[in-house]
Simulated assay, not measured.
Amino acid sequence: MAEPTRRLAVVGGLGVSPAVRLSLPSRRLLAFLAVHGTEVPRSLVAGRLWADVPEAQARANVRRAIWQTPAGWVAAGGDELRLDAEVDLPALHTAACAAIDGAALTLDEIERLSVDLLPGWNEEWVLSPQESFHLLRVQALEAACITMTARGMHALATQAGTAALAADPLRESAAFALIRAHLQEGNRHAAAVRFRTFARTLDEELGVEPDPRLARLVHTAVTARSA
Rank of each mutant, 00 (worst) to 15 (best):
M1V: 15
E3P: 00
P4F: 02
T5R: 15
V11P: 05
S17N: 05
P18H: 01
V20W: 02
R21S: 09
R28L: 08
L29I: 05
L30G: 03
L33C: 04
A34R: 08
H36K: 15
P41Q: 13
S43E: 11
L44C: 12
A46I: 12
R48W: 05
A51N: 08
A51S: 12
V53M: 04
A56K: 13
A60T: 12
A60Q: 05
R63F: 10
Q68Y: 08
A91E: 09
I100A: 08
T106K: 03
T106R: 01
D108V: 15
E111S: 14
S114L: 11
D116A: 15
L117I: 08
P119R: 09
N122R: 12
E123G: 14
E123K: 14
V126L: 05
V126K: 06
E131Q: 15
V138Q: 07
A143S: 10
A144K: 02
C145H: 01
I146N: 15
T147W: 06
M148V: 06
G152I: 02
M153K: 07
A157Y: 06
A160N: 05
T162N: 09
D168I: 11
P169I: 15
A174D: 00
A174N: 04
N187R: 14
H189C: 11
R196W: 10
T197Y: 11
T201G: 10
L202I: 10
D203G: 10
R213S: 10
R216F: 08
